[in-house]
Write a protein that binds this DNA or RNA. Sequence first.
DNA 1: TCTCGGTACTTATCCGGTTCAGCTCGCGGT
DNA 2: ACCGCGAGCTGAACCGGATAAGTACCGAGA
Lengths: 339, 339
Amino acid sequence: MRRPTIADIARQAGVSKGAVSYALNGRPGVSEATRARILAIAHEIGWQPNSAARALNGARAEAVGLALCRPARFLGMEPFFMELISGIESELAARSCALMLQVVRDHETEMAVYRRWWGEGRVDGAILVDLHVDDPRVPEMRALGMPVVVIGHPSAAGSLVPVWSDDGAAVRETVEYLAALGHRRIARVAGLPRLVHTVIRDRAFEEVCSALDLAESGTMHTDYTGEEGARATRRLLSSPRRPTAIVYDNDIMAVAGLSVAQEMRLDVPADLSIVAWDDSPLSQVVRPPLTALSRDISAYGAHAARRLLALIDGADPGPLEDEAARLTPRGSTAPPSRP
Amino acid sequence: MRRPTIADIARQAGVSKGAVSYALNGRPGVSEATRARILAIAHEIGWQPNSAARALNGARAEAVGLALCRPARFLGMEPFFMELISGIESELAARSCALMLQVVRDHETEMAVYRRWWGEGRVDGAILVDLHVDDPRVPEMRALGMPVVVIGHPSAAGSLVPVWSDDGAAVRETVEYLAALGHRRIARVAGLPRLVHTVIRDRAFEEVCSALDLAESGTMHTDYTGEEGARATRRLLSSPRRPTAIVYDNDIMAVAGLSVAQEMRLDVPADLSIVAWDDSPLSQVVRPPLTALSRDISAYGAHAARRLLALIDGADPGPLEDEAARLTPRGSTAPPSRP
DNA sequence: TCTCGGTACTTATCCGGTTCAGCTCGCGGT
DNA sequence: ACCGCGAGCTGAACCGGATAAGTACCGAGA
């Protein structure tokens, strides 16, 4: 049972392939009567345009690509990516545009996938995430000539269109808030040091700490997993002059850190204040609920998707600075009991 | 800057398109010297086969489809789907097969998307989830003739290949465990009543309760959200003869239920035992950590993906019963203090 | 020397659409 | 009665590959 083609419709309607094409695409060149007849036949035999044939004539793929470079099994654990994807989807779905998703091992494979998708005409554009310092993907994407939106700071996006939020401001707000509560020793459990946004947060943290004269504050880098977050917390809390507040770069580590603190019989927030970056159900269900840097990640993804669609449409959307994360105080932060 | 085609390679190499095609596909018909020359040129000018042109000749799309029928913003909150997707991805990635993801409003749109993808030759197969009772998608998919793997019980999968786990056994194990602890009034906060697996769990729950003579047990249906889970819990715990144990159909509701119990100054597990369906970081970080029905959702997705790939390859994989969820006792279950 | 067989190609056709250059009407104007 | 014009349609080329069929050439065997 072969798929019906316009040739089948043409035969049944007693007209040529060309006429059928005009009719189905709502272009002039056929009478209304013929058009109606052709549409009826097309509907009746369940015709669907073959995207391959369309694409061959230079049409859109109506899909955008997202290759994620991380172990597939971590994906489900990262609320950030899942919310980002759902935000992207919400925007794409409205335009019946699909998302091509592929999890890859490393950045070389990632670029190979993009190159293939683009070369094969399977996607109209892509969204680049997890920007590194001096990321080779930026110039490579540029060279490919594919429409790309980068989720990350403009300073690293080269000539690609960036969508970002001001992490520096969020870091400053958090540290100033903790300092106002009376904290003097604030630690930061950060993510991968080679990621651009980690570097930005690192720098902002250092600056605000030195501005507020918080000499004993410092940053530890991890891989974002709960395990490393727990380990870092254990080390921090074991030191003689342990911090009275810890700021985590994601919610998974913050929650893991909370568990460690409770294991070590420290009271949160009396003995230790905790701030999580990125709000998620996770940060809200633990006791105490975590003070978090919340932002609408979904909207973030939606903005990136919308900009990408504009780019694909030939527009020239400028960079977009999304809202910075807002500090949402909950039960995990308080003045230190013994500063 | 046009994309290079085999015609460009042919011109540079001074041979015909046909020879280039043979060379690039590793088929006999060209000398090794010519083949090497052609491959070198192809590599040099960065040639990629145009998938549209390939597809036109009946080749694979090298992508499988997944249309999810739910609000996009809920996606990020559902650990189940995210883990399922990462499991699917892990299997697909190994074969360089992409996942076409689209979030849709309703089942009609979902079928329209599948029909389009299949008709357009953009996917080689699909994975069907969230099976309903008398799901019209099953016969429609069958009629399409597209390779499809259903995640759900065989009784509802018609002639499509099912991948499922025995929810009935898990329900029985849970109720028997709670009864053994001394619980007599066990409530169940279930998911959407029209979903096949809800019906299966409902029936198993009813059967085991009547077998164990737990007359005061019952099921409340919700939409899986934390809000409804909390509401159901509030109603259950407000009743004069409140249950001493509640089994939730997902982790989000279980965590919400835990919060409600704590709000109402009930001690978990002394006053109320809680069991969550599906284990996730969420169930492990709350205090007390939740006893959960854990299963490897990632593997579940991977199995479905593998079967789909086999189906696409023309094999005839039988149904696959995956492992049933195992009861993982944690701190949220104990004998009732006042039965 | 002629044929046979195989290698190394070329040529032509096909896939299913889009698009464009004609072609054929019927009709209005003169 | 004839021309011009445009609506409505046809036929064919084209997109970029895969592939079946055909051809040129070379060396071995009769």
